[in-house]
């Protein structure tokens, strides 16, 4: 079954076309890594899938339910409902700074009446254990490192038992020595067969974890294939050039 399906999605800011007909489908349990130069539309595509960007045309379906069909959005209430079956992890974590870690996790499921307080607290404890932060339930976000914050953000998204998890450059705001702990948590999700779409600059991680790698360039999906096809033996000069900038920066770092 397809958990996420985009058909010919377009989006423009004024005269600037950010997405120029993106089609992508992600099966249940599949892990798709999205790579590409900045400005290629990766983040915009991901954000459109949870309604944070409004697309100009095309169709987006989440777990079989259309959020947009041929450029026409469903009603706002339904859109919220569809999108909330999707977990989103942001580059800058976006934890709520005025609540401790437990309340960050419990707020949405309790307010939305999905779990009562006690069940939410138990589920939060489980998920914090899973991301290796069982002892941080009472900590405030300001007391955590970037890697810990991102792990909390992942746990928070998991509280709603999402059908699919979307990651928007989850390690880009982290110091290099902190990316490992976040990637480990994501590997754990992969082992649980979570469906994931990951926009990332971590090429090695993409090769390692993804079932499929998608190369976006200029608002379209330029190439799509297995990690071996895309990363080991890049078929186009554009992709080779893009990958070279990474190996260079990796060497200089």
């Amino acid at each position: 079954m397809e958990m996420l399906k985009l058909i010919n999605v377009t989006k423009s800011f004024g005269t600037n076309e950010v997405l120029r007909g993106v089609s992508l489908s992600v099966r249940r349990g599949e892990i798709v890594a999205v790579i590409g130069p900045s400005g290629s539309g990766k983040s915009t595509m991901l954000r459109a899938c949870v309604g944070l960007e409004r697309v100009s045309g095309g169709t987006i379906e989440l777990a079989g339910r259309a959020l947009v069909r041929d450029g026409v959005y469903v009603r706002d209430r339904e859109a919220r409902d569809i999108c909330s079956r999707t977990g989103m992890v942001f580059q800058h974590f976006n934890l709520f700074p005025h609540m401790n870690v437990r309340d960050n996790l419990c707020l949405a499921p309790v307010l939305r009446g999905l779990l009562d307080k006690k069940a939410a607290a138990e589920r939060a404890a489980e998920l914090l254990y899973k991301v290796g932060l069982a002892d941080k339930a009472d900590a405030m976000p300001s007391e955590l490192s970037g890697g810990q914050k991102q792990r909390v953000a992942i746990a928070r998204a998991l509280m709603l038992s999402p059908d699919i998890m979307l990651f928007d450059e989850p390690t880009s705001a982290l110091d290099p020595e902190l990316t490992g702990e976040v990637l480990t948590v994501m590997r754990g999700l992969a082992a649980d067969n979570m469906t994931m779409v990951i926009v990332t600059h971590e090429i090695a991680f993409a090769r390692d974890i993804a079932d499929r790698v998608v190369f976006m360039d200029g608002g379209v999906i330029a190439l799509s294939g297995t990690p071996a096809e895309i990363l080991e033996d890049p078929p186009t000069e554009r992709l080779r050039a893009f990958l070279r900038t990474f190996s260079r920066s990796a060497q200089s770092a």
Binding site: L52, C83, S84, G87, H92, L107, A157
Partner: peptide, 24 residues
Amino acid sequence: GQYEAARVLGLSSFQTTFRIVLPQ
């Protein structure tokens, strides 16, 4: 990002205002 996080967690705009935005 606070509004975006609240939205993807499915909070209503009323809940976002009173639980997320105003306390901050």
